[in-house]
Design a protein around this nucleic acid. Structure first.
Length: 497
RNA sequence: GGUCUGUUCGUCUAGGGGUUAGGACACCAGAUUUUCAUUCUGGUAACACGGGUUCGAUUCCCGUACAGACUACCA
């Protein structure tokens, strides 16, 4: 499934494509039948759409190089594999799994460092290099399963200039004779990727660092095809590391530490268990993109907040980091808070109304708007308006005991009772009146108003924190204020020291 | 094991032969808010280690350590 690392890779590809006024293509690399997951393709499209990545070409869009699903391009790959066979760059291999295992065991037992199917070992295996042409033909005619392997040269320095890492050199003796065509007639990633990138005129291959070790193999493939001039440029991105400990970020870490790893909700096809997505967790796409973009890339200026358009104009591969980036959800939350706060009140009001609808609570829009105004500086996620503002809609069901024992004093109870009576006798009611009345009552009883404010907050919200108290009272209204004071007076006991 | 890649505050990172090593998140403290949060101000905190090269190295080179990726008929 597409997780956050894949989204970042897609984002970087998109940023560069837009920056260079190129074409962004969505190609589905589904050459492994065993790993087919129903719905995965749609999930990828929906996720990237949510993030704001648009494709100019590809699956679901169409284009001059269709089809864009590799599983539908089988004939193309076998044609090109044949070309390699014809020019002597590849060969048929008939070895069974057991024979391959036996070879590796033998090499291991003999103390050979590399147990690979390569320029040395291939001469003792069953393939079109060791078998006579008639034997090969007979085997194929008999329907014997076979693969096509690349005949990697024995002694050759393979070099590639990675846009992020610079020159990387590997000796061909370190590269094994990779399978190009599997026995089920499907290509491996290596073949399909190179052929498609060539055919689709791909200019840049931007992918995770886990691909770096096989990049030289790809370079070799371009050479064998005689496509060196058309070879795309490579850029291998730093990995996303787990927040604590060692290793790359995994779904397990996300579950363990309680943050999402998928862009959208992802129901596990086997267990049916739904892994929560960034979208559903309340992240805004703009914040998500901004956060992701800075995980491995920076503009070299102090600017931290970027819209997609700004990212496009600022982005460059040269400023991508080499080292892996440890994932920190706190930073993601900070971005979310930032973006949420600068949304217009009207939009935020809609978020609150949506939360309320889910709870089957109806509220006039102007009340919701008032709540949003007093809450907006303290929320991180859209759902926080409701989560942290439940007391606007219902009296607290319980009181925070630590606050009770600290704040609910005899003085507080005394002022509270008088305050209730005073409010009752009033005609109008709003934040100013609430404040003035409280000050008056407190002064009359010679209690500092500041002393009983926390108690009053406790009465209204059940807790020690929350937005401006006077505004809370104005929003819930005079009757509710009186009722909540009554309720507190009845239920709360003054702690006798 | 082998190959490849990497290593600046807790985290994301800027920088680069001579700097008080900068910013952001997080954390802590003060101010403001007669409450909470916001906001503002300030603070703690880093060049993995060892050799070179050099007048000088965190910066360049080599090694070591550590970390990661890869080492499939997976991508």
């Amino acid at each position: 499934a597409l997780h956050i690392g894949g989204v970042r890779t897609a984002l970087y590809n998109y940023l560069l494509a837009r920056k260079l006024k190129g074409t962004m293509i969505l190609r589905i690399e589904d050459t492994d039948q065993n790993r087919f997951v129903p719905g995965a393709e749609e999930y990828i499209r929906k996720s990237l759409e949510w993030v704001g990545i648009k494709f100019d070409e590809g699956v679901g869009v169409g284009g001059p190089y269709a089809p864009y699903r590799q599983s539908e391009r089988k004939e193309i790959y076998s044609r090109y594999a044949q070309q390699l066979l014809d020019n002597g760059s590849a060969y048929y291999a008939f070895d069974t799994e057991q024979e391959l295992d036996a070879m590796r065991d033998r090499l291991k037992a003999a103390g050979v460092a590399i147990q690979q199917y390569n320029s040395i070992t291939r001469m003792e295996m069953r393939n079109s290099l060791t078998l006579k042409p008639e034997e090969v033909k007979a085997l194929i005619d008999a329907g014997t399963p076979y693969v096509i392997r690349l005949k990697v040269p024995r002694k050759e320095e393979v070099r590639l200039n990675d846009l992020i890492r610079g020159w990387v050199m590997v000796h061909s003796s370190q590269i094994d004779d990779k399978v190009l065509m599997k026995s089920d007639g499907m290509p491996t990633y290596h073949l399909a990727n190179v052929v498609d990138d060539y055919l689709m005129k791909i200019s840049h291959v931007i992918r995770g660092e886990e691909w770096l070790p096989s990049a030289p193999l790809h370079v070799l493939l371009y050479k064998c095809f005689g496509w060196e001039k058309e070879m795309p440029q490579f850029a291998h991105l730093p990995l996303l590391l787990k927040p604590d400990g060692n290793g790359k970020l995994s779904k397990r870490d996300a579950d363990r530490l309680g943050f999402p790893i998928f862009p959208l909700n992802w129901p596990d096809p086997e267990t049916g268990e739904v892994a929560i997505g960034y979208k559903e967790a309340g992240y805004l796409p703009d914040a998500f993109v901004n956060f992701l973009a800075l995980l491995g890339w920076n503009p070299g200026t102090p600017q931290e907040i970027f819209s997609m358009d700004e990212l496009i104009s600022e982005f460059s591969l040269e400023r991508i980091n080499k080292a892996g980036a440890r994932f920190d959800i706190l930073k993601a939350q900070w971005f979310n808070q930032h973006y949420l706060r600068r949304k217009p009140a009207d939009e935020l009001t809609t978020y609150l109304l949506q939360s309320l609808a889910r709870e089957n609570i109806s509220s006039p829009r102007d009340k919701a708007l008032k709540i949003v105004e007093v809450m907006r500086d303290r929320v991180t996620f859209p759902q926080d308006f409701w989560e942290q503002g439940k007391f606007f809609f219902a009296a607290p069901e319980s009181f925070d005991q630590s606050v009770v024992s600290k704040r609910w004093t005899a003085d507080a109870a005394k002022v509270m009772a008088a305050y209730r009576d005073e409010i009752k006798s009033l005609d109008g009611f709003n934040a100013d009146i609430a404040r003035n009345t409280l000050e008056g009552v407190a002064a009359a009883l010679t209690v500092p108003a500041g002393k009983i404010l926390p108690a009053l907050r406790l009465v209204m919200t059940g807790a020690g924190g929350g937005p401006d108290l006077m505004m809370i009272m104005e929003i819930i209204g005079k009757n509710e204020v009186i009722q909540r004071i009554d309720h507190a007076l009845k239920t709360l006991q003054v702690k006798v020291a």
